[in-house]
Each structure stands twice: as structure tokens, then as C-alpha cells.
Amino acid sequence: MKNLLFSLLMLPTGCSSPATGAADSTAAEAALPVQTVSQRTAPPAPTAAMAYDFTRPAATYAMPAELAELSGIALAGSTHITGIEDETGNLYEFNLSTQKVDRVIPFGGSGDYEDVARVGSDWFIMRSDGKLFRYSGSQTQEYETGLSFANETEGLTYDAASKTLLVACKDEPGAGLSFGQRAIYRLNPETFKAEAKPAYVLDVEAIRGSSPVAESSAGESGKKGKKKGSGKGFSPSAVAVHPVTGHVFVLSAKQNGIVELDKNGQLLAAQSLPVDLFPQAEGLAFTPSGDLYVATEAGKKSSQATIYLFRPQGL
């Protein structure tokens, strides 16, 4: 398995210099062609609606106090979810049966860690300044991805079909894209450098136009709430690839929404999340069968972060 997953044992241990953010791109980088994916500006057809009802979780898991700032999750087999929080360099192994943290694993120093992905037996952790960490159980290696704090790298996931990592940028998209767009980059499996052209491009206006509740997010578990100004933009906080369809799901904490793209990057659906369940949605993780875990940080009314399980409807 490891031989197929990034040739992990043969990777170099050195780190190259980070690339600058979108505002500081070199002339050569700015001249690179950008293959922007076109997206629908009309609302998606009913048949393209998401398969998940985000007002009705199948299970709810309250996180301990040390995970109040829960910022990313990944599955660790069928019995555990591993989470990180955005202040300390620790992995937290949460037992889904006992609903307790079984083990805390230090992998690095203090830092703004945003997401985590599992590849074989190794853990990859993304920091907001574009630096990638790989923890192999005995040591931690660091890699410069070429992305920077200007991009605000908040989402990380493993794409099994391409055997690569995907990184979602919350802020500047880079690659000559406009600020009305958001980018998801694929990392080279040998160097972990971001490819010059984004793998997926999100158009904020298209997302707003495709969401039936773009300007008035759901309030209490599906009931209409007050307008929250969700039109300000879509800022990715997590990304995950559906193991069956290959569709890409992108979460936005700031606007409290989620979108679904097909394999080619076409926008299929966009919807808001109920604010009583998701004060700040930060993490996504799929099971092999397509069940979806969504994590949220603690809100103003609750001191606990929470992970919810959602099962596909109609199955």
C-alpha cells in the first residue's frame, strides 16, 4: 500500500523554499495559463441536490475541552476519528464507541494547524501558512508546498483516485485568478509542491446563485433564520472526496455552507448549514461507504466542539 501512496519511503527529507502568495507571484508564474472550470450560474436541478440532510444527523459526538478549537478531522479505521486543533501540534485519537480521546500524539510545535489527512499509516497535517507536515509514527518531516499564508491553506484531503493530496485555499487563489474565485490545488506526490494550475476552481458568484438559501442561511435545524450576509463570499475550510462518486465536497466555515463538485469541477449543488448545529464548520471526512462526518468548532453558546455523522438519503 505504501509503495502506491506517494512512494513514501523514498521521499526526500529536505524542504525547499516557499513560493510567494498570489500578490507576490513572479512574472513567470503569472504568465502560466490558468484553466478555469466553468460553473453553472443557475440553481442546480433538483436531481443534483446533495444526498445528505444536514439538519438530521444520524449520530452526534461531543468533543472534550482540549478540542474546542477543532479544525480538521480524518478517519482512523472504522472505530476512531483523528482530529487536530489550531493551536498545538497534537493528533487526538477519538474513540467513536467510548466517545473519549484514547491517545494524544505530539507531531510538532505550536502553530495554526488547519486540517489533517491519512495516507497509509502516515498522517499529513496542513498549516495555514502553506507548510505541510508528515508524521510517520516516529518522526515528523516538513515540506514547503509553494503556497503561503496569503493563500490561507485550510483544507486538506487525500484523493485516492489520483493518489495525491488536495489543498483548499481560504483566501487568495493565486495562479492569476480573481479574488472572486477560490482554488483547490493538487500536490505533486513526490515533492508535495502545489501544481501551477489549480485542480478545481470555485466561483463565489456561481455558488451564491446556485444556493436556494444563499442570502438567508438555515437557522434552527432547517428553519429559516435571519439573513447573515452569506453573499460576502465562500471561504473553504475543509475539502473531501466522495469515495464512491469521486465528487468533491468543500466546506465554508465563514459562510456556513457546503458545495458539491463533480469530477470535472462542475458545481452540482450548494447549500447552507443550520447555525445551531454548525457555529463554525471546520472538518469533513467520508467513510468508505459514503457516510459523511462534519466537524464544527465550539460556538459562543457552547463550549464544546462537535462531530456529526450524516448518512446518504434514500439508501
Score class of each variant (00 low, 15 high):
G108N: 02
Y92N: 00
P106T: 07
A117D: 15
G89H: 10
G130P: 07
V116C: 07
R127H: 14
G89S: 06
S110K: 08
D122A: 11
G108T: 03
T88A: 13
E85K: 11
V101W: 13
I81D: 05
D115I: 06
A117T: 06
D112L: 01
E87C: 06
D112M: 02
G120N: 04
E114I: 04
D129G: 09
F124T: 04
E93I: 08
E93N: 02
E85M: 04
G89V: 02
D102M: 13
N95H: 12
S97Q: 13
I125F: 06
T82H: 00
T88E: 08
E114V: 06
G108W: 03
I81M: 09
M126S: 04
G120Q: 11
I125M: 05
S97M: 05
E114M: 01
S121E: 04
V101D: 13
G120A: 02
S121V: 12
G108L: 08
E85D: 14
L96M: 15
G83F: 08
N90T: 00
G108K: 02
F133C: 03
G109F: 00
D115C: 03
V104A: 14
G111S: 03
Y92P: 03
K131A: 08
Q99E: 10
T88S: 10
T98A: 09
K100N: 09
D86W: 07
S128T: 15
F124N: 07
D86F: 02
N95C: 05
Y92R: 12
V104I: 15
I125V: 12
S110E: 05
R103S: 05
G120C: 10
F94W: 07
G108S: 14
E93W: 01
D115V: 14
W123K: 01
S128L: 01
K131W: 15
V119G: 14
H80F: 13
T88V: 12
R127V: 06
E93V: 12
G111K: 00
N90H: 09
G130F: 07
G83C: 04
E85Q: 13
S121N: 11
V116N: 00
N90K: 02
V101F: 14
T88P: 07
D102K: 11
G120E: 13
G111W: 04
S110F: 06
D115N: 13
V101A: 15
G83E: 07
D129K: 00
G111Q: 01
E85T: 06
K100P: 11
F124D: 15
D112R: 02
F94P: 01
I84R: 03
Q99V: 12
R103C: 02
K131G: 01
Y92K: 09
D102S: 06
G89N: 12
S110G: 02
N90Q: 10
V116Y: 02
E87F: 04
G109K: 01
H80N: 15
D129W: 02
Y92A: 09
F124G: 09
D86V: 03
